[in-house]
């Protein structure tokens, strides 16, 4: 019965480009309760990053523009807020970790400075306080010899260590919402697991709500309470994590699930891939944007845009055949 910490409703973010209007995010809605973790998955270009940058009002205008919808954070209408007020939320109440730790830290500034400026800004720390706090944060995220490393530059850190620094930076004001945009994509597998474990651990300690963006369903399985699946700027499916994994109600989700390598995966056997490529979001067809690649598409799919069907409580799917796909998944599980 807790209030949602974040509510996104009918969000539309468009980019004006030479090839026309790119509808990067088109009518996306979701809700996140306090302490929950939401996973956002989808292929490259499906609008995951743009959705979350829109929440932070970090879309470059022009070419981008939030064309509609609303974002409500803890009862505040973020999109209506003057930018000065948004800045008070950024970094303090909502923090973000980015995909590529190699380029997301400023190469010209010492780590200490980059960490300290956050708490100096938001918590009114003096230099000494900020430095102490920065040190504490580095130790918290497991950076050895932190005292000494504070005075180093980003290039002296490995990728995994830099991502730890990013996490330390993001968490230094104990934000209520942490948005992690593919925090492990650029890292190698063992480091990936460590970073995810770290986020999980800090989340449970601080009670932070988390949005975890990834195109790897394997990553979100063990970490999230619910998942939204995005395709071509739209939410294709939305469900609690367990439900989504066991009873997907959308052919796109099923395709994504089939392409996750499972532990028993036979070496040498080729991994499944959804045929075709994601569509050009500047020129979407009239019908379902996935129809061209869908193995069960029928005429109606190419003609009409599909409805967003609620197949079970809290489980929605954007598909003309959502019910049937859902029933089929159910029977597959039973057999």
């Amino acid at each position: 019965m807790t209030d949602p910490i974040l509510k996104v409703d009918g969000l539309k973010t468009y980019f004006r480009t030479e090839d026309g209007v790119v509808k990067a995010v088109d009518d996306v809605s979701f809700e996140l309760k306090k302490g929950e973790t939401l996973g956002i998955v989808g292929e490259s270009g499906s609008g995951k990053s743009v959705t979350n940058l829109s929440v932070m009002r970090l879309i470059q205008t022009p070419p981008g523009e939030i064309a509609g919808g609303s974002v409500t954070f803890d009862g505040i209408d973020v999109l209506a807020l003057p930018i000065d007020e948004v800045r008070k939320i950024r970094g303090k109440r909502i923090a973000m970790i980015f995909q590529d730790p190699m380029t997301s830290l400023n190469p010209f500034l010492k780590i200490s400075k980059q960490l300290m400026e956050v708490t100096q800004l938001h918590l009114g720390h003096t230099k000494t306080q900020a430095r102490e706090h920065a040190l504490k944060m580095l130790q918290l995220v497991g950076i050895p010899d932190a005292e000494h490393r504070l005075d180093e530059y980003p290039h002296e850190f490995s990728g995994g260590m830099r991502q730890r620094v990013m996490i330390a930076m993001a968490l230094s004001c104990e934000p209520e919402l942490l948005i992690a945009d593919e925090p492990t994509t650029a890292l190698d597998v063992t480091i990936q697991a460590q970073i995810l474990e770290l986020i999980k651990d800090l989340k449970s300690r601080m009670g932070t709500s988390v949005i975890l963006i990834t195109h790897d369903l394997g990553v979100v399985a063990g970490m999230t309470d619910k998942i939204i699946v995005m395709y071509a700027g739209k939410v294709f499916e939305q469900a609690p994590t367990k439900e989504l994994f066991s009873r997907p109600a959308n052919p796109y989700t099923k395709g994504l699930l089939r392409s996750v390598p499972d532990p028993a995966h036979v070496q040498g056997k080729e991994l499944y891939q959804i045929p075709g490529l994601p569509p050009d979001v500047a020129n979407l067809p009239a019908g379902c944007p996935f129809a061209e690649r869908c193995d069960r598409a029928e005429d109606i799919c190419r003609r009409e845009f599909p409805p967003f069907v609620e197949v079970a409580a809290g489980h929605h799917s954007l598909c003309h055949f959502a019910e049937r796909v859902y029933e089929q998944s159910k029977s597959e599980v039973n057999s």
Binding site: D84, R87, R90, G91, A95, F98, T103, S104, L105, N106
Partner: peptide, 22 residues
């Protein structure tokens, strides 16, 4: 356009600080 400027903005720094410091 670089990532670290986006990081600086995401921290809540104002445009003047983003420009001169980062």
């Amino acid at each position: 356009r670089s990532d670290y400027i986006r990081t600086a903005r995401a921290k809540g720094l104002d445009e003047k600080t983003v420009l001169f410091r980062h």
